[in-house]
Design a protein around this nucleic acid. Structure first.
Lengths: 240, 240
DNA sequence: ATCGTGCTTATGTCTAGACATATTTTTTCT
DNA sequence: AGAAAAAATATGTCTAGACATAAGCACGAT
């Protein structure tokens, strides 16, 4: 075992097991030695081995079932994760000067599509607002948002004009559950105008909906400027 | 504590702490009681509390630092995760009959863009192949793939014509590291023809590159059929 | 053969205690 | 006062042992 000084023990066991899988010393569908045996081999407690194997199972590399043992996943369904945070930070991290403009905001009844997203009755009064986020003066992304005031009683509708709602919500309305989907759309006339691109341009769209204990909080359609790529956090999950 | 019979103890502690955050009983930036105190409150061992808090830190809700203690993240950067598996399964899961056609495959030198993706010298001989995946006879997604044979010595280039490479690779070439990015592009002439859509149609593009211990394995550009949405696994990570 | 019944086994999870490590805080020395 | 050294403390991680639980397996009765 290449016990590198850096890593914790569980981590280094995971790395070693991962290597054995990738090097096909242990093959797809095969059963691997049980926790107790691995504990002896790696000179660790069973709990430590368990932790390592759990990590790999979360990654999708292993299938584990009680009594049946641990086997290498036949077709590993691996996971990739994305961060969703504050737009301003993304812009600034790209080395650009952040700007923000509220284009419209008003109270209006939920149309069918939005109501379905949120699980609220059609016609429910929601705050709708559109804003553009800029990087170095050029449009970075466009957000079209519907907010359920019932789920965020602290939000003062009067302050919406000035507020960066994205930031306010992230900081003041943590959510319990979120759904997120990517798709692509041709820029409609409004998108084109606000993002300053030509009509029909392909836009990456992120639709995001969040809930807390009071119900749905908000659903947003975010349109990124052309050429923008949303990529996985290059963080750990796979190491070395 | 609403100790629901279903959950494990660590899980139920996590749920309770999450509730306190969402209900703003513990506010952003505030420090929460330390593990030892929570262990007493929840009548659990410290290791169990630790596990629960780790989960929340992974979710992005908590910031933890040695000695400094645990505090609620000021701007929670939450994570969303996507599964990447076998195309056929996605198609079948959508209730469609799967079909697959290899459009082209040949050995050719890597152009600059691809070489950069893979970290190989320009001109390196790679297998390039394009294939269309169908659902109920209509194009579902289009893959344009470059394969580094050095990283998958088991792959027989002669069999490529018949093979479903996506499936073969997933099963036979598990990777150590992957990068994945979404973007949007207007369909070029070739995309339009193969996906049977009109030229200029907005397409959701997923660019994916994987590595194992022998180096880069493959990089793929996947173009989804219009209207397709790639969404988060509605799985756990946030519960109840 | 077929269907239960109960034994066995591998993982799931928890516990209590220990030591490691990063920081902060305090003390001590210049 | 300011810098360096020492103490304190919260999290990080491991260990050994325990019990819970799902699921395979064998045995026996029909």
């Amino acid at each position: 075992m290449t016990d590198k000084r850096a890593g914790a023990k569980a981590h280094s066991i995971a790395t070693e097991v991962r290597r054995r899988i990738v090097e096909r010393r242990w093959r797809q569908g095969e059963r691997i030695p049980d926790e107790a045996e691995l504990a002896i081999e790696f000179d660790a407690a069973r709990a430590t081995v368990n932790k390592a194997l759990q990590m790999l199972a979360d990654e999708g590399l292993l299938d584990r079932r009680r009594r049946a043992g641990t086997r290498i996943a036949i077709d590993p369904v691996r996971k990739a994760s994305f961060s969703i945070g504050i737009v301003r930070e993304q812009v600034e991290q790209a080395g650009l000067v952040y700007g923000h403009r509220v284009v419209a905001h008003r109270l209006s009844p939920a149309p069918a599509g939005i109501a379905a997203c949120l699980g609220l009755p059609v016609g429910e009064k929601l705050v709708r607002m559109r804003a553009v986020h800029y990087g170095d003066g050029t449009p970075f992304q466009l957000e079209d948002r519907w907010i359920n005031l019932r789920a965020v009683p602290d939000l003062d509708p009067a302050s919406l004009r000035r507020l960066n709602v994205n930031e306010w919500l992230v900081r003041n309305a943590p959510y319990l559950h979120a759904e997120l989907a990517f798709s692509a759309e041709n820029a409609n006339r409004r998108d084109a105008r606000l993002l300053q691109v030509r009509h029909g341009q392909a836009l990456l769209i992120q639709q995001r909906t969040t809930w807390n204990d009071l119900g749905p909080i908000t659903t947003v359609r975010v349109a990124f400027r052309p050429g923008h790529r949303v990529s996985t956090d290059g963080r750990a999950a796979e190491a070395d």
